[in-house]
Simulated assay, not measured.
Amino acid sequence: MWHDLMAVQIPIVEKVLRTIAVYALILVLFRLVGKRGLAGMNTFDMVVVLLLSNVVQNAVIGNDDSLLGGVVGAVTLIAVNSAVTRWLARDPKAARLLEGTATTVVEDGRLVPGALRSLALRPSELEHAIRIQHGDGLGEVARARLEPDGQLLVALKPDEQGATRGDVEDLRRRLAEIERLLTAIAADRRPPR
């Protein structure tokens, strides 16, 4: 039993190379699909990810069902992903190449022509992102863009943004000053006794 768990049935170098090749293939596939594929996982996306993991499983493990073979594949996958992530954090050109750039979908309250279609983004998804980020509608949006990581960022027009604590404190200071001035004016207008 222990022998079956620990005996790797294909060479470790082959296992590492298989894992790296499958990782690179999936990275390229997700890059070709684009940002929309990562923007929000719906039921269909989840089914695809689950099936994809099953489809590529044999490509990664080969004819090896040993525990040690699985550990080698998992460690290789985590190590490669960590190395790629660190590389992208240090090299903006590589990040642009592998991740892409942000795509503006709304500019000054108007949809950018063709942007939603090219990203396969539904208007309801955009409206949901606007509501989550404290907007009520498209007209309140200064700019919205889909980031390379699939996150939809919405910047509201200045007049449509909610008040901050600083805004409220500024109002309190101004009101206190107005009250002080009104009290001073009222005191100046009182007839002398």
Rank of each mutant, 00 (worst) to 15 (best):
I130R: 01
T101G: 08
D167I: 04
M41V: 02
N54E: 13
D149K: 01
I130C: 00
E140I: 03
V84W: 13
R172K: 03
V48G: 04
M6V: 07
L116R: 00
V72C: 05
V8D: 06
T76A: 11
A176R: 15
Q133T: 00
Q133C: 02
W87Q: 05
E147D: 07
N63K: 11
L50C: 05
G73W: 03
I12T: 03
T104C: 10
T103G: 06
V56S: 11
L146F: 03
E99T: 03
R86S: 14
H134Q: 14
H3K: 06
D167T: 01
E99L: 04
V13W: 15
R165F: 11
S82E: 10
V28L: 15
V47H: 11
L98P: 01
R165G: 02
L51S: 13
L111A: 07
R173A: 00
L97Y: 09
A59R: 14
A74C: 12
S66A: 02
A155C: 10
L138N: 00
H3P: 02
A163D: 10
F44T: 01
N63C: 12
T19F: 08
I178M: 15
T164K: 06
M41D: 05
T76S: 11
L51R: 07
L67K: 06
R131H: 12
V28I: 08
A129M: 05
M6W: 11
R90K: 11
S82C: 12
L119T: 01
R145K: 12
A129G: 03
L52Q: 03
I78G: 06
E14Y: 09
T183V: 05
V80G: 02
R131M: 08
G34R: 07
